[in-house]
Every structure is written in C-alpha cells, then in structure tokens.
Design a protein around this nucleic acid. Structure first.
Length: 465
RNA sequence: GUCCCCAUCGUCUAGUGGCCUAGGACUCCGGCCUCUCACGUCGGCAGCAGGGGUUCAAACCCCCUUGGGGACGCCA
C-alpha cells in the first residue's frame, strides 16, 4: 500500500480566502486521515501578479489555522528548468510540437469555431509543419474521451475533440500552468489532488499530459465553491475575507476549521468536531458535490461554542492581545490580568468572539473612576431611592471579611429581608453601579472578579452620582 | 455559443430503493431556568425544483425541462 500524498497549491496572487482555506483543510484532512503527507506548493509562475506578501499571508494563515505541511515548501517558479526538461522530453517523444501561429490567427480559429457552434479551440495547424521553434503544444489525442473517477463528483468524462492542443511552453520559454502542475505533482509524489471546482476542466487536459509522459495519474477530487448569501460566488464584495480578517474579528482558528469543514462535509448529525475528530472521521466519500452558502450566523454560533469551551487563560491572553492592538502595548500592559483571568469564565458563555468578549470585558479593564455608564441605565436605576441602598451595601461589603460568593449572597439576603424588599429591586441598581449597564454576568461572581476594592469604589461612585 | 458540474427546510446538512407521515444544526417564534444578559433546556414553524419513466415500492435509479454555477488564455 502506497503512502497517500496530498497537497495544497495556491497561487500567491492574493490572500488566502475562506474558499482556499477550506480546500487546504480538506487536503490536509485527506492526508492526515490516511497517515500520509500533506505538501504545500506555491504556484508563483505568474510573475506579474505573484507577490511575496501574498505568499507570506498564505503561510501565516495556514499556520494560524493549524494546517501544518510536511517537507519543504515548493516554489513553482524555481522549477522552470525541470519543467522545460520535461517539455523537451515530450517533443523528443513526439507528444508535443512547435507552433508559430500568431495570436490573431488563433483568435480567428476560435471565432470561426464559435460561429459554427463548436467549442472555440486551436485547430492544430502546426502539427505537421515540423517547426523547430515557437511555442510548444501538446499533441493531444483527437478521438475518444478522457475520463476520471472524481473523488467527490464521481465519473467525469470529456470528449477529446472538445480539447485543443494546449500550449506547454510560451514563446518566452516559460512553462504554462497545466504542464507545471503535472510535473510538480508527479515529482512531489502527489497521489491525491483535491482542489477547487474551477479546475475540473483542467483535469482531463492534465491527464492527457500524464498519459503522454507515461506517468501514473493521481486521484482527483474537485470540491464545490463557497457562495455568498446571494448565492453568487463568494467575492470580496460580500465578505470573502482573507482568513486573517477572521482572526482580526476575533474568531478562533479551530472554530474556523470546524465551520469550514461542515460546509460541504459531514459526519452524520455531528456539528462540532475537534481537529482530531475531523482527522479521525474524514473521508472524501462524505464530501458534498453541490456548492454551499457561507452563513455568518451559523459560523458565529460555532465560534460561540468554541469560546465557551476554550481555556480561560488562553482567552485572557487573547483579550490582552486585542487590547494591545487597540490602545498599544504599553497602555494595554496596565491592565490587571488577574481580573481578566477571573472575568474570562463569566464572559465565555456570553461572547460570540474575542472582539465581542473584549467589549463585554470593558468594565473589568478600567478603574472605577473611568468606567463608562450607559446613560439610560443610570437614569432608570440610579435614583434617589436606590443610591442610599448602594451606599449601605458598600458599607456592608466592606465589613464582610470573607468576600466570597456565599458571604455576598448572605449579606444581600439579609439586606433585602431587613428592608423588606425583593432582590429584584436592588439587583439592577447594583449591576448598573458595578458595570455601568444593565447586562452582566451574575452579580456576586462579577463582584468577586472585580475584587473588593473595585466593587466598593464602584458602588460608592454610583451612590454619589 | 460549446463543454463540464450541481439541485432535500431561509442556510448548513443526514438520507445511497422499503427503517422517511424526510432526521439533525443555525436562524426565527413560544415555554422553562433566572438578579439582568447570555448559556442551557423543552417545544414549534419550515424542505425532497417541475414533468415523465423503471419498480410491488423512489428524496434515493434513468430521461427531459427549468434553474444555478464553472470553464473555454502564450492566467493560475
């Protein structure tokens, strides 16, 4: 049994977006599930559009997602000599030939074919001319069909008459994409190619090259695209953001992987998977063949689930990181991390993202004097009736030596019994006093997280408003 | 225009001829929990694109229609 080798081969002409990330995830899963290798190749042969920034962004994104690759990264542009060597081999073997048709001539052929209701293609005019220079074209089979068993779509076949003699080497001597991909995949020992739907049409062409070379053809699988809410291909217009944008929005990488995996793949009714579970259960048999719509709402739910389960210490660290991005490292460092650490477990079940959590953590970050109040909440709850109660509660808390959940509860219970009021009557005023707004985690746990000093300072500040 | 692919609740999906009066999840709507907001929990709304076949039996197989998407480059 041969080892399974899959790969992800993005072209560095832009950032890694959500669609590419999913393709990478599936390829990674395919390899990991089989105990095989996952390789990364940067297809940077388009020198005009490829950038090192994009290359770095792709690598960063993969690392953030946790999709580690095996072996060295292959840069396609550095393999031109090898590609040309193979092209020469093809010419020598009679599987390729030179062509000197001009762009205009070829365009005319395509135009003509189109008018005759056929597929626009080069007509093979130079096949028998025996030229020794020009672009190099593959001498593709004229009859029959080229088919393959797609890992996700099943058997796909295209008539050879539909395909023309594709260019293998340009007039400037550089190899073209289809040739380079075949040579690289072969040389890297790739056995399984999982890629985007938009490559389905390239596959029969690439298979023709494999056959001409006498090489083993790998297994192919084409995963459908991801659509925007309008069911159009996800584009920048509707948030086909780069993976790192989601990081900035405060989403967790495992959540991104989980959501992406469930978009087009399933394992029964299970919605939530750890990375290990995904690896354990992944199979291309369970990949869907129809395109799916990216649903931000469900994604947020998935992220929320991960927020709940995350290690509070990790979340506190992330909160510090995000705060530093906002106010600078120096300013952020003034934050009492111990408070954040205590607040994290309270905020976890309430936050959809780190950014969301940071917003909710504001009251825990600033000193009492700087805490912002929600004006409407102050108007409604910090009244002439309630302010004296807040002052009294502050006194009692100050006198409470224990300052524990139990002692606070007991203290408040006695307070409302003495005043003969319902807890509801003081709960919201206290809440507004300690966090500045009407929503927060439980009162006592919030006080505990804030610490005695901050709790007292806030109650007294509110009482004095 | 030609070729290729796709089609189950609004969305993600389970379903591979009888277990389907189609299951789960998100959203939405109710109830419960409750110091608020969440979380959690219980319940509800909502779907096999249409038409022909095949079969004792079809969401599942075949054909057509319709609708979506992709590709047709000396881009990748």
């Amino acid at each position: 049994m041969t080892k399974i080798v899959s790969r992800f081969a993005p072209s560095p002409t832009g950032f890694l977006h959500i669609g590419g990330a999913r393709t990478a995830l599936f390829s990674w899963l395919l390899a990991r599930a089989a105990g095989g290798e996952f390789r990364l190749r940067i297809e940077d042969t388009d020198r005009e559009r490829s950038t090192t920034e994009a290359t770095d962004a792709i690598i960063d994104s993969m690392r953030w997602l946790g999709l580690a690759h095996d072996g060295e990264i292959v840069f396609q542009s550095r393999r031109a000599d090898r590609h040309n060597e193979v092209i020469d081999q093809l010419i020598a073997g009679g599987h390729a030939y030179y062509c000197q048709c001009s762009k205009e001539e070829v365009d005319a052929m395509r135009e003509k074919a189109m008018q005759e209701g056929r597929k626009p293609k080069y007509d093979g005019a130079c096949r028998a001319r025996g030229l020794t220079s020009g672009v190099v074209r593959l001498k593709a089979p004229l009859e029959g069909a080229t088919g393959f068993l797609d890992m996700v779509k099943g058997f796909i076949s295209v008539e050879n008459a539909e395909m023309d003699d594709m260019i293998l080497r340009r007039s400037d001597g550089t190899p073209t994409y289809n040739l380079a991909v075949v040579v690289d995949d072969h040389d890297m020992g790739v056995t399984h190619v999982l890629r985007g739907d938009d490559h389905v049409n390239n596959t029969p062409r690439q298979i023709q090259i494999y056959r001409a070379l006498g090489w083993d053809v790998p297994r192919f699988g084409h995963v459908p695209m991801i659509l925007g809410p309008d069911k159009k291909k996800l584009s920048k217009r509707h948030g086909a953001l780069s993976v790192m944008e989601y990081e900035k929005m405060g989403y967790l990488p495992e959540a991104v992987c989980n959501y992406l995996a469930r978009l087009g793949w399933s394992h029964g009714d299970q919605e939530l998977f750890t990375m290990d579970e995904m690896v354990q259960h992944f199979s291309t048999d369970n990949l869907g063949s129809s395109p799916s719509v990216f649903d931000l709402t469900k994604f947020e739910w998935v992220n929320g689930q991960y927020m709940q389960k995350a290690d509070p210490a990790r979340l506190a660290d992330l909160l510090m990181d995000f705060l530093a991005r906002e106010v600078g490292a120096e300013e952020a460092a003034k934050t009492d991390k111990a408070v954040l650490l205590r607040a994290a477990p309270l905020l976890q079940p309430r936050a959809k993202s780190i950014v969301d959590m940071l917003e909710q953590a504001r009251p825990f970050i600033v000193e009492a004097d700087y805490m912002a109040y929600d004006e409407a909440a102050v108007q409604k709850f910090l009244t002439g009736d309630t302010k004296p109660m807040l002052a009294e509660i502050a006194d009692r808390i100050e006198a409470d030596v224990e300052f524990s959940e139990a002692s606070l509860e007991d203290l408040h219970r006695r307070f409302i019994e003495e005043k003969d009021i319902k807890f509801k009557a003081v709960a919201q005023p206290i809440r507004v006093a300690i966090v500045g707004k009407t929503q927060s985690p439980g009162l006592f746990e919030t006080m505990l997280a804030l610490g005695r000093e901050q709790t007292l300072a806030r109650l007294r500040r509110a009482a004095a408003l």
